[in-house]
Each structure stands twice: as structure tokens, then as C-alpha cells.
Simulated scan of single mutants.
Amino acid sequence: MPLYMDVHALSESVAMDDVAQAHAADLRAQAPHDVQFLRYWVAESEGRIFCLVDAPSAEAVNDVHEQAHGLVADEVYSVKEGV
């Protein structure tokens, strides 16, 4: 399945604890969409969140975000993992 990196660009800073809660909601909502959220990173003071996701499409990634908590990504990129 393709691998995606999504980017959430919030208009204010974001707390790691809040992102952890949103990620937990994504994990609860992912199975019906055949999506697996793998990891996430947070730039708290910049209000940026990055999610690495195994999914059938970019649309499926945002479908899970929409269902789980309503914070859809501003950008979703198809990526390949390197070493």
C-alpha cells in the first residue's frame, strides 16, 4: 500500500498532548478505511503536525482525520522511505 506524509498547518501553537489525543482518535477510526497511521511528529511552537500513514489514497487519509476529529491535513504527499 502507498505511504503518505500529511502536513497540518495550524494558525497557532499546538500541544503535544492534544496531538496525542487526536492521533488516538485516528487509530480508533482507521480500520474501516483500510488506513494505518504509523507515526507523527509535532513542531509545537510552529503549529505544525506531520503524520506518516499507510493508506490506499490521500483521500482515505483525510477521511479518517475528518471522521476522527475534523482536523484534515492541509497537504498530503505520497512518499517513499529511504535509509
Rank of each mutant, 00 (worst) to 15 (best):
Q30E: 13
S57Q: 07
V64S: 11
A20P: 03
H69W: 08
R39E: 06
A73S: 12
M16V: 13
F37H: 12
V79I: 14
E44Y: 05
V72S: 04
P32D: 02
E66F: 13
R39I: 01
D34Y: 01
M16P: 12
Q36D: 12
P2C: 14
D63L: 12
S57K: 10
A43P: 00
V35C: 06
V76P: 01
G82V: 15
A43H: 10
Q36F: 07
V35F: 01
H8F: 02
F50Q: 04
L38E: 06
R39M: 03
A24Q: 15
V14K: 10
D34V: 05
R28F: 00
V42D: 05
V42N: 09
V61G: 09
S13G: 15
Q36H: 07
V61K: 04
P56K: 10
E46A: 08
V19M: 09
E44K: 11
H33C: 09
C51I: 05
D63R: 11
H23C: 03
R39A: 12
A58N: 02
N62E: 09
V19F: 03
D17P: 07
E44D: 08
A9L: 15
L10V: 08
L27R: 14
P32T: 09
D18W: 06
G47V: 04
N62M: 11
V53R: 00
V79Y: 00
S45L: 02
A43S: 12
I49S: 08
P32R: 06
V42K: 09
P56C: 06
H69E: 04
D17A: 14
S45I: 07
Y77E: 14
L52S: 02
A24Y: 02
S11G: 15
A20D: 12
Y77H: 15
S57L: 05
A20Y: 05
A73Q: 01
P32M: 04
E75F: 04
D34A: 10
P32G: 11
D26Y: 00
V61E: 06
P32W: 01
E75A: 08
V7H: 10
Q36V: 09
S11D: 15
S13N: 13
S11V: 11
P56R: 02
